[in-house]
């Protein structure tokens, strides 16, 4: 048996410039929030930007970005959904708000299918909201996507840092490009140890994102045109600039 999808995925992603998985080995650190905020920031600055939610079982980017979950339009494949200036794709387009009970091999199958049938318009940046952990999705991204550049999200929690360290170690061992580390949920005056963590694995701390109690609502508000709080906007703007300048 031959899986024909494997022969077409590369071509489907040809119109896409940089592929940036936003990942972390730990759940609940704000990967989706960071991915959504960065996607909004890039698109606001005029970059043609897409967001692919590969966290099938915990899909939430559509909620943050206020995406209306209609079935995608078909046109020699399926077209990404749109929210604001963003192109968007997620398993949630098909599962809506139901549970998605998939085992590992099924996650891989679903990912291959989405990659094989989604027809992306030209994009400069495709951010990928990754699920937590070091599992099928990371290995599939490394196997099927061209030159992914990882962003790794951590928080000030020492527990999170310990777990995230394992992902950084693995990416370093596999010589996978890591743009840098983002420290999320940072309280003012906190002791930042993420820089040392990043440095230990040959990468850099790109910046910190301040803790905001109502961050989900703030992101959704931003999609609707409401300004982000100044400190948050400044942090995301600075991250966007650093990621953009890390190109290539």
């Amino acid at each position: 048996m031959i899986d024909p999808r494997l022969d077409v995925i590369g071509r489907r992603l040809e119109p896409v410039g940089r592929i940036i998985p936003v990942s972390s080995a730990k759940g609940g650190v704000g990967k989706s929030v960071c991915a959504a905020l960065l996607a909004l920031s890039f698109s606001t600055q005029g970059y043609r930007t897409g967001l692919l939610d590969l966290d099938f079982q915990g899909a939430s980017a559509h909620l943050l970005l206020d995406v209306r979950l209609d079935f995608p339009e078909e046109e020699s494949g399926i077209k990404p959904l749109r929210t604001g200036n963003l192109d968007f794709m997620s398993f949630a387009a098909f599962s809506r708000e139901h549970a998605v009970p998939l085992r590992g091999s099924e996650v891989s199958q679903a990912m291959l299918e989405l990659l094989a049938i989604t027809i992306w318009d030209p994009l400069e940046i495709l951010l990928i909201d990754m699920p937590p952990g070091i599992g099928d999705e990371i290995f599939d991204v490394l196997r099927y996507l061209r030159d992914p550049e990882f962003l790794v999200v951590t928080t000030p929690s020492s527990l999170v840092r310990h777990v995230v360290q394992r992902l950084l170690a693995m990416l370093s061992e596999m010589k996978v490009p890591v743009i840098g580390v983002i420290e999320n949920m940072v309280h003012p005056g906190g002791d930042c140890q993420a820089a040392a963590l990043a440095e230990k694995y040959g990468t850099t701390l790109l910046g910190s994102v301040p803790f905001e109690r109502d961050i989900d609502d703030l992101v959704t508000g931003a999609v609707r045109g409401n300004p982000l709080p100044e400190t948050l906007a400044s942090a995301i703007g600075s991250l966007t600039a650093r990621i953009a300048s890390a190109d290539g």
Partner: peptide, 10 residues
């Protein structure tokens, strides 16, 4: 399911 057969699990 037509779009994404794994939606069968949903």
């Amino acid at each position: 399911i037509h779009f994404l057969p794994e939606a069968a699990h949903v």
